[in-house]
Design a protein around this nucleic acid. Structure first.
Length: 104
DNA sequence: TGGGTGACTAAGT
DNA sequence: CACTTAGCCACCC
């Protein structure tokens, strides 16, 4: 049921666009969703083509948003009421156990 | 065709 | 709980 004609990039973007507001997926989850383990590959695709998709809904396995884009992501999380958790230092991160989502 | 880079992950300290 | 090391796969030039 996959489309072998679709490029890895197109599949990644397709999955990210399917993530509903207030939910998130880890890079590894997105890769797994397309039948691959290229978590880093997903990150690269996002860096180049992520400008057209809700990249803030894709976070690291630890719950931290994209490196160097945390401040921007926080604005979206607050707007979408995404479950967040704060560390003692005030560092926020997505509450993966609650916000994690997977395509049906 | 091959080499270097990275919006990563898991495991160990 | 936070930081460090090694392993991974896909992208770009």
């Amino acid at each position: 049921m996959s489309e072998p004609n679709e490029d890895f990039v197109s599949r990644v973007l397709a999955v990210v666009e399917e993530i509903p507001a207030g939910r998130v997926m880890s890079y590894g989850d997105v890769a797994a969703a397309i039948g691959s383990r290229a978590a880093r590959g997903v990150g690269q695709v996002m860096a180049y083509y992520g400008g057209d998709v809700p990249w803030w809904r894709v976070v690291r396995a630890s719950g931290h948003p994209a490196q160097n884009h945390e401040s921007r992501a926080l604005e979206y999380y607050r707007a979408e009421s995404t479950p967040l958790t704060w560390s003692a230092s005030g560092v926020f991160r997505v509450d993966l156990p609650r916000a994690r989502w997977s395509p049906t």
